[in-house]
């Protein structure tokens, strides 16, 4: 499967990546070769093989429902570019 320019633009937009027009042919070639690898893997019959989540046979560890993190707002907000009234401030988003 070969990706078209529009496919690459769409994927870049979904990931919020800015690509210059000059870069697109090379990115399209690289992504297409990844898909070619996937296609090659698809030819293997895996119907009877369960998906592998982890090479070691581990299962998910759970934690007890205990509050262990206190208020660290000052520390975290020292990293933010703009805070006001305890809020992280971002360019206005209107979603309606």
């Amino acid at each position: 499967m070969t990706l078209e320019k529009t496919d690459v633009e769409r994927i870049a937009w979904l990931a919020r990546l800015k690509l210059s027009d000059n870069d697109i042919p090379e990115v399209a070639r690289q992504l297409s070769s990844i898909l070619a690898l996937v296609e090659q893997m698809n030819t293997v019959d895996t119907v009877s093989v369960a998906p592998l989540a982890h090479p070691l046979e581990l299962s998910l560890k759970l934690r007890d429902d205990v509050v262990t993190e206190g208020n660290q707002r000052e520390t975290f907000q020292a990293l933010a570019s703009h805070v006001e009234a305890g809020l992280y401030c971002v360019p206005k988003v209107i979603d309606t």
């Binding site: 560890k61 759970l62 429902d65 205990v66 707002r73 975290f76 907000q77 305890g86 992280y88």
Partner: peptide, 30 residues
Amino acid sequence: GAATAYGALPNTQACGVDLGLPGVLPVLNK
């Protein structure tokens, strides 16, 4: 392990995992 209590002052119950800081990992609540 941040608290879920309603009505706290903004961002006082948001830890590094909730903020999505690099290097943190989620651990599921039993």
